[in-house]
Amino acid sequence: MDQLGIMLAVLGAALAAGFAGSGSAIGVGIAGESGAGIMTEDPGKFGLVLLLQALPGTQGIYGLLTAFFAILKVGLLGGDAVSVNVWQGLGVLFACLPIAIAGYYSGIAQGKTSAACIQMIAKRPEETGKAVILPAMVETYAVLALLMSIILLNSIQF
């Protein structure tokens, strides 16, 4: 049964990295499409567009981070072998869910906001500061989810 515990933790890590990463990929993709449109008119905006396109990419990093934490926790990344029972494995799986879910949806939403802000700097390049803040408002919820995932992972006792 101890194998099942480990595998549940692995499932959690996979969900965290997979879903948060997918959300970021979609978000960065949406922002990139918008950016390419702007650059056909003004290739000089590459730097700004790249900055805004990169913003929805953080969810993927948060997901990866949580996944690493999860497998580190059950001793899959070297260190001392830990024995994980089914309940502990389930705990790790559940702890990974906040960032998996919030990462997926907030990545997409942030991508849309970034795309809109890229349109904004096309007309008003002097307002880049504001254009960077709006997508960050969306990211808040990914940060909160990451926080919860980390706190939950941290609180599971072995």
Binding site: L64, L65, F68, F69, G78, T140, L144, I150
Partner: peptide, 27 residues
């Protein structure tokens, strides 16, 4: 007030990403 929890989350994220890089380097 809860919004300030990002100070912890981002700080942890930096250390953790750095730790992951170090772990991969070791591997």
């Amino acid at each position: 007030v809860l919004s300030y929890s990002r100070l912890l989350a981002l700080g942890l994220a930096t250390s953790a990403i750095a730790m992951i890089v170090n772990t991969l380097t070791g591997l």
